[in-house]
């Protein structure tokens, strides 16, 4: 039964991180910082649920097929999410999105102007 509480704690933690990510997305000053906060949801927010689901599927449902599919889901998730994040950030910068509040430094913009 102790394992069931591990599943509960994992899912509860991921709910906390998803909440923090949403609050961050609403409060952050510019587009790039909002993306940083959304990574919060995309990593521990989702991975906590997936890992909890894997433990639940193997230990309580005794459904190996479901557990293996969840593992594959987690692997694909981890591999594909950063690519879209990178593409959005680069696309936004080249399209002309600039932070309203000044950035501390912008070494990318300096090198692009060269």
């Amino acid at each position: 039964m102790a394992l069931l509480y591990v599943v509960y704690v994992l899912i509860g933690l991921s709910v906390f991180f998803a909440l923090a990510g949403v609050v961050g997305m609403l409060r952050m000053p510019d587009a790039f910082c909002r993306m940083q906060s959304s990574t919060n949801i995309a990593t521990l927010g989702v991975l906590g649920v997936i890992i909890g689901g894997i433990i639940y599927a193997f230990a309580f449902l005794h459904n190996g097929e479901m557990g293996v599919k969840l593992i594959v889901l987690g692997v694909f998730y981890v591999v594909t999410v950063p690519i879209s994040g990178h593409a959005i950030a680069k696309g936004a910068y080249h399209h002309g999105v600039r932070p309203e509040k000044d950035m501390v430094c912008d070494q990318y913009g300096e090198d692009l102007e060269k």
Partner: peptide, 12 residues
């Protein structure tokens, strides 16, 4: 990809 997955840093 590891840097982008870590919250707080995005490789551009």
């Amino acid at each position: 990809n590891s840097i982008t997955l870590t919250p707080g840093t995005i490789t551009m």
